[in-house]
Write a protein that binds this DNA or RNA. Structure first.
Lengths: 145, 145
DNA sequence: TATTGTTATACTCTATAACTATA
DNA sequence: TATAGTTATAGAGTATAACAATA
């Protein structure tokens, strides 16, 4: 019987299933950790890009995060309403918006980033120390190929 | 400066980002591999459950896959239209539907499963042999905790 | 009363197309 | 003509609520 070649129906044997559900579980944990700061994982990604590089246009931030520029608009709308980022026309190319963290935004980011890393570490607690680093390296490799 | 504690804005440092995009990349590859069989990764998951266990109710299949029972309805509607599964009332509890693979469905599953595992292996090609197994174990651990 | 399957509905996420202003 | 940002819209995916049939 052909089905005997696949003796279990455990969905955990399917890598796509494992990845999807581990992602969901981590996102639930990190979004909960970020909730006190009024942002979620997606917002944090944008703040992280803005916190660590010279001023960027909306499009550059979007491309760094692999999200659509139309999605970037509403994401920044929300962050601007919360007072953590500002937008102003780039004087050297008025088609572009220069996006920057406000001073309050930098504070929010630093606190939120600490909370995020704690949540991530807590999520990885069950693993032996090598496995966590190995996981990150493996995922990076898979994304690059 | 607080930002000096986090010297890069590389989103690849963020585990949630890595997981999300690796999942998307794998799903793209496996869905392409499954396309000739008229199913996608989600369908394959259901077929896998049905192929390897005694007949199950819709709810049991849904719970095994951690999907909502209302989502299961439309998923099975599509699979039934394609002739790969059948539904009939459970004689011992007429509230339930017994869901089973058709003979054609079993053939479809076997061929699709082969294609899926090839796509998965091909996706993991860039890793050294230990890393692939380690990845699966790590993800399983993270999901269980 | 509770459970299974169903339907209708709504909500989130994201992408596409079309518009504007600038280059 | 092309690009950046915006808006409106549509599609996929999934969840919630209400209902019918059955237990």
């Amino acid at each position: 019987m052909s089905s005997e070649a696949h003796p279990t129906a455990d969905p955990h044997d399917v890598l796509a299933y494992l990845l999807k559900h581990v992602t969901a579980k981590l996102t639930t944990a990190t979004d909960a950790a970020l909730e006190p700061f009024g942002i979620d994982s997606k917002d944090l990604g944008a703040l992280r890009v803005l916190a660590h590089q010279e001023p960027k246009s909306q499009l550059q931030v979007a491309q760094t995060l692999s999200i659509d520029r139309t999605t970037m608009v509403s994401l920044l709308d929300a962050l601007e309403r919360k007072g953590v980022v500002t937008r102003r026309p780039d004087p050297t190319d008025r088609r572009r918006n220069v996006v920057e963290l406000t001073p309050e935004g930098l504070k929010t980011f630093d606190a939120a980033w600490t909370a995020y890393t704690q949540a991530e570490n807590s999520f990885l607690t069950g693993l032996d120390p090598n496995a966590a680093g190995q996981l990150r390296r493996t995922l990076r490799t898979l994304l690059q190929d």
